[in-house]
Amino acid sequence: MTRPKPTDYYARDRRWHPPAYAPDYKTSVSRSPRLPLLSLENTASEITGPTFGQNDIAVGDNDLLSNFARPGENPIGERILLHGRVLDENARPVPNTLVEIWQANASGRYRHKKDGYIGALDPNFGGCGRTLTDDQGAYAFRTIKPGAYPWRNGLNDWRPAHIHVSVFGHAFAQRLITQLYFEGDPLIARCPIVNTIPDPAAVQQLIARLDINETLPLDMIAYRFDIVLRGRRSTLFENRMEGN
């Protein structure tokens, strides 16, 4: 296997991401740096990152319908196939990278000791899954569609149905956590966390689309969610990283 050329990653477009300080999302007010981020040219510390293999996960970790359920039972809720690809900004697939998800159950309740919402826990639903992308960057999970739930921000704020997604890529500079939403949900436009993102086109990138062709008839609805990580330069010029 030849070693990829160690080149810089494209600068992150900070106008596409939410700002640290987004006062309508109240918790961000005291948790946002006030001083500017210091821009750093990539070094070995940023263009490398942890690697994962099949030994790190188990078969079935990506099946939230069964990975916590009692034998022969199923979680309550709308069964969905969540699938997509992990690409970089150059539209190249990102293979063999770890994708982890977590979510509330169908009643909007998280299996977490700090969640006291009245929505019922589902004894057959844990709410987390993980998988590695294949050599084409593709991933898939089986799960249930999470429920919306209220949260303490404004007096009457509700989170749209969403699934949290964590992706590594191949460099620490590509590390990303985000949330996916579901096409057609009227709560998306009202959500203060969604609305931390300034550009409506960027919000569209977080909405999983109903994928009728991948639906399993008489079994489960499919949603497609592609994930784009930072891309990198293709050419190496003289201002190169030594030691590589």
Binding site: A91, I197, Q205, L206
Partner: peptide, 11 residues
């Protein structure tokens, strides 16, 4: 080029 998927809080 494609745009990087925007970040959201880990919650």
């Amino acid at each position: 080029p494609l745009k990087e998927t925007p970040s959201q809080t880990a919650g």
